[in-house]
Nucleic acid binder design. Structure first.
Lengths: 215, 215
DNA sequence: CGAAAACTGTACCTTCAGTACAGTCCGGGG
DNA sequence: CCCCGGACTGTACTGAAGGTACAGTTTTCG
């Protein structure tokens, strides 16, 4: 019982590393069992097929990202009481955390699976969906608080804004990979931060003659 | 000579449809040659391997997206002289055009390839890179014009803003697929539009006694 | 007409996911 | 102490997919 879950975790660890390094499709089961020191039968004892492995990774990722998000935003809440400041701070902290993680932050797992053939498997699709929905509802909740205190400058649907933050993260991951520029992800997190500022933060009252901020 | 390129085009047509419907990995060469009515040898006469097919799709896509972008922004330029209005209008038109295209607008091809194993092939990577760079430099050029006329409200790097629009498109594609909500893409295009408005558009001058939007 | 381009046909190789199923090892409860 | 079930191993195999090699055939165009 104990030993079984330990092996399963080891397979997931190895798979995660490999998937982040090379993508899901390029990660072969043979390779994983070789590194884990088990046999093919052993692998299929734990996972009924490769989709099941993807599911395992996705579940793990969901937990990890929950920890990550509540970590940064929890810390932000310690540092400020103002919901807007908390969100802005949280995004900055998140950008930092995502930069620290070498080539592969957890979000990559979802991104790596989210546009693949595997998505046609119902369960994988559901798991990806649940991951994305988790992130955006996390943001959505905070945006609700902010909008209470600071009426948005434009009439917006907060669900769309929440998804926007997610899109910038996913898009940032895709573009970081595609352009070979790892900095794009944190950069886009800060763009999300900018958007929130522009949307909610009141302008400092300008003294007459003072120009708005230019580049 | 003529016939050769015609066959090549037919293979690309079939491949494009299949890839948009099922993803690149799930599209088999056998399937393509069957539908094209050619043999395997015939296929490999035109494409040295599957990466080469991806390259072909990417090249085509680059042309198509060039046409799409200059189409919508050209039309927008006909409708307004103001660079900001042109951009806002262009984004709206783009959102409409992308909604029209059923499940598979051209961007999907890049998205479908951009986070796959194939990306580890140098040429494919270069092509994906060039596609993304094309889109963002297109946006970047227009943002330059806008910033001339309207000083941005926050100090921003216009390259980052250009990439932000791209990220919202890519992220929108990924989330549309992942959440099974096709509307997310156009929705996020409009969020990009919002961002540009917030960043550049001057607020309507307030009459005395009128409150600023903030609480 | 002739040469190159555009294929066809056949045979074969490798990798990979997945199946089937019998046998083994091992720790804990009765 | 033994047996039961969870956690595997071993062996053998299948089918799909990407790809190679290469000789032969048809088509097209200058």
């Amino acid at each position: 019982m104990r030993k079984g879950t330990a092996t399963r975790q080891r397979i997931l660890d190895i798979a995660e590393t490999a998937v982040l390094a090379k993508g899901f499709g390029a990660t072969s089961i043979d390779e994983l069992i070789c590194e884990a020191g088990i046999t093919k039968s052993g692998f299929f004892y734990h996972f009924k097929d490769k989709n099941d492995l993807a599911l395992g990774l996705l579940e793990r990722h969901e937990q990890q990202s929950e920890i990550l998000l509540s970590g940064v935003f929890g810390r932000a809440r310690e540092l400020s009481d103002d919901p807007l400041q908390v969100f802005l701070l949280g995004l900055t902290l998140l950008a930092e955390r995502l930069t620290e993680m070498p080539a592969g932050h957890p979000g990559c797992i979802v991104a790596s699976l989210s546009y693949q053939d595997r998505l046609f498997d119902r369960n994988v699709r559901a798991a990806v969906n649940s991951n994305m929905a988790g992130w955006s509802s996390h943001f959505r909740a905070m945006l609700g608080e902010i909008a209470q205190a600071y009426p948005p400058r434009l009439p917006v649907n907060l669900d769309h804004v929440a998804r926007m933050v997610c899109c910038l993260i996913d898009g940032g991951i895709v573009m970081s990979k595609g352009l070979g520029m790892p900095d794009v992800l944190p950069e886009q997190l800060l763009m999300a931060r900018n958007h929130i500022r522009l949307l909610f933060q009141p302008w400092p009252t300008r003294r007459p003659g003072q120009r708005p901020v230019a580049e």
